[in-house]
Design a protein around this nucleic acid. Structure first.
Lengths: 228, 228
DNA sequence: TTTTTAGTAAAAATCTAAAATATTGTCAGC
DNA sequence: GCTGACAATATTTTAGATTTTTACTAAAAA
C-alpha cells in the first residue's frame, strides 16, 4: 500500500525551487542551467520545466525563449515598488476588514497579538527569529482576513512571496535585539488599538507606515551588497 | 536563415490555451485530457504541461496530482469576489494616480476618451464590440497608469484575465445598443471630469461603481445558464 | 437481494532518456 | 578587425517506458 495521494515531482520541484529562490540560494539574474538543476535536485527536465514555468507566472523566474530560464533580477526600483504595492493593498484590505469584521475577527487579532507578544521564552536567537516571524505573519494575516475576500488574500500572499526575497536579504544579517522587539510590540499594540476602535483612517495610515519601515534598511543592505 | 528569436511551443501553447479558456471554449471544471489536448493543439505533452503549469499559477487551471488538470471552476461567489477585488484595486490605483499624475497623464486620458467616444464609425456589430472593447480597455488603463506602479499594473492585468472569463459570458449574448453606448459615454465623461478635477473621493467611488455595474447582469446570465 | 470488497484490465498521467533544434564560442580566411 | 563556417554546448521536443488511477467484474458479506 502506498500513500493515498502522493505529490508528483513537478509540484515537489516547484516548492523546493521556490523556497530556494526566496531564501536567496541563487543570485538575481543567475542563469538556471538545466544540467545543473537536474543534478542538484535529482530530477528530469520535464518536472523541472513545469516548476520553472509556474515560477515564471509568479515572476520569480524569467524565461527567455530558446535560451532557458533565469532567476528574476532584483533592483532598488523593484524593492520600492513591490513594498509600496504590498503596503497599499494591505491598507485597502484593512479598511475593508474594519468595515466588515465581526467579534470573531476581533478576538482572533487579540489572540495573535498575545501570542506574538510572548515570544521571548524561546531559546536560541535563530529559533527566536523563526518563531517571531511566523507569529508576526499570523498576526498580520488575522487582521486583513477580516476583509473576507479570498482573491485579495491570494494577491497578498503572492506579493508576500515576491517581497520575501528582499526581506530575507535583511533578515539574514539582523539579530533581533530586546529593544527592537519591544519597539515592535508597542507598534503592534497601537495598531490593535486603532483597529479595534474602528478608526479606519488612522489604522490604514499606521499600517502602511508599519509595513514600509523595512524599506530604508533593506535599501541600505542592497547598496552595501552592490559595492562590496 | 530562420527567424531571429522564435517562440518555443510551451509559450505558444500557453497563449492559445489561455485565450481559449478566457473565451469559454472549455466548460468550468472540465477535465483536460492530455490525449485530447495533444490532438487538438498538435503538440506533445511536454509543452502542454508547461503551459498548464503556468495557468495553474494564474489560477485559470487547477492541477490534481496524478490526476491531471482541470479548468478552474466558476461560481457566483467567485464572480462577486473577483469583481470586487478588481474594483477596489482599481480604485486604489486611481487614488494614487490622482496624487501622482502629471500633464502627460491627463493628456493621455483625454486622448483615449476621445478615441473611445468615436467608435461608431465602424461596420458590423461584432467588429464594433471588439473595437469598443479594446478602446475601453485602453481608456481605463490610461487612467490607472498614473499610479506609476508596475506591480499594481501587473496585479490588475492578472485580475483582468480572471475576470474576463465571466465577462465574456455576458458579452457573448449582448449587442451594444446605441442607447447603451451613449450611457457609457456619459459615464466616462463624468469620470474624466472628476479625475481631472482631482476629486479623489468622488472619482474612486464613481470608478468602483462603474466597474461593478456588470455584476448583476452577469449574475443573471449565470443563473440562467445553471437552470437551462 | 443489496452492498461491499477484491481483483483485473484498460486508460491516463507522469517520467526518463535520447533525438532534434537553437544558440554560443572559436578560428581560419579575408 | 570583421565575417562566416564549424564545433561545442544548451535548450527544447518527442516517443516510449513506468506508474498511478479508474472502470469493470465477480465473489463475499450483510
Amino acid at each position: 500500500m502506498t500513500t493515498p495521494t502522493q505529490l508528483n515531482q513537478g509540484i515537489g520541484a516547484y516548492h523546493r525551487l521556490k523556497a530556494d529562490i526566496i531564501h536567496n540560494a541563487f543570485s538575481p539574474g543567475e542563469k538556471l542551467q538545466m544540467s545543473r538543476l537536474k543534478a542538484y535536485y535529482g530530477l528530469g527536465v520535464g518536472p523541472l520545466r513545469e516548476a520553472l514555468s509556474r515560477l515564471v507566472a509568479e515572476r520569480l523566474v524569467v524565461a527567455e525563449s530558446q535560451r532557458g530560464f533565469r532567476i528574476a533580477p532584483m533592483s532598488l526600483d523593484e524593492l520600492h515598488d513591490i513594498y509600496e504595492a504590498r503596503a497599499e493593498i494591505e491598507g485597502l484590505m484593512l479598511r475593508l476588514a474594519i468595515e466588515r469584521g465581526d467579534d470573531a475577527w476581533e478576538a482572533e487579532i487579540l489572540a495573535r497579538a498575545h501570542t506574538l507578544g510572548k515570544v521571548m521564552e524561546v531559546k536560541t536567537p535563530e529559533e527566536l527569529l523563526d518563531i517571531w516571524d511566523s507569529r508576526h505573519q499570523a498576526f498580520h494575516t488575522a487582521i486583513v482576513a477580516g476583509c473576507r475576500s479570498s482573491h485579495l488574500m491570494q494577491i497578498r500572499a503572492d506579493l508576500f512571496d515576491r517581497v520575501e526575497r528582499y526581506r530575507n536579504l535583511w533578515l539574514r544579517e539582523t539579530v533581533l535585539s530586546e529593544a527592537a522587539l519591544e519597539q515592535k510590540r508597542q507598534e503592534h499594540a497601537r495598531l490593535v488599538d486603532v483597529i479595534l476602535a474602528r478608526d479606519t483612517r488612522a489604522a490604514t495610515q499606521m499600517m502602511i507606515d508599519h509595513l514600509m519601515t523595512p524599506v530604508p534598511i533593506i535599501t541600505e543592505v542592497m547598496r552595501r551588497h552592490q559595492r562590496g
